[in-house]
Amino acid sequence: MTSLLIILLLLAGAYLVAVLEAWIANGRLRFATPVLAGIAMLGRESIVPRQPDRIFFETAPVLLLISAILGAMVLPLTPDLITTDLATGALFINAALVYVLVALLMAGWGPDGAYAMIGGWRFLGQLIAYAMLIVMPITAVAMRAESLLTTQIVVSQAGLWNIVYQPLGFGLFFVAAMALAFLPPFDLATANSELASGVEAEYSGVRLAVFRLARLTLVMTLAAATVVFYLGGWQGPWLPPWAWSGLKILAVTAAMLLAGRLMPRIREADLMAWGWMLGIPLALLNIFLVGVLVLVWP
């Protein structure tokens, strides 16, 4: 029952992300737009390009959606509102979200189109740049919580949220999460002006609708993960826990969506270079700082 509720909440959240995205893009707050756009997309033709790798082509959007949903299953909205409180939750969310890469590789290779293929391989490069900046900050979070349980991680922030306790980790995680969700300025795989939408280029109709839904869910999942790992999860005064979770998740989502509009897309070479020459040393420094901090002031 709980899991059904959470999946419904997740879909509702994805819906809100779509509304928010349109609001930020054109300044009009319209709640019906995503529904209409979705129905229109279902009504459109869903063309399969000639001679594709059909298995890859069909699997990719589904795998992306599964990956985003499974990632959200270990994140608590309130102490009780969690589907599976896995003992290795903080690791599991990584494991689930790595399949975003696999899905994009399939979507890139499957249709046998140049734009899509380049987009897919670009995303593999992007993963190489961001992956360590996801796992290393999570390690530092787990050090403080002494557990990989996501509920335990939230509880460990009762005194002080991790955003204050380890701001460096938060910054790295936030940026890396945007890169994971291929949001601008990290939308190298779906760049419209460079690759005519890249991995999304060959999808149309209902398949594109699934792809878009998966992307929105993914943004939702990552915002929820940021809240759980760094913003104290459901904790907060006055309001009930679910309200705090919801508000924080929406705020993080808005920040993620807004940031990309205000700057140009990052160059792939810069992303890789900064991820490795700046990001990884900083992430290691973060682990060290948290290590010292945990020992002197838990």
Partner: peptide, 25 residues
Amino acid sequence: VLSLFALARTFGKARREPGKDVPAT
């Protein structure tokens, strides 16, 4: 997802036309 596909199918099928299935170029 399969039920979404089925729903879309009720709206109609993609029509086969020459040149339509060429990857985006």
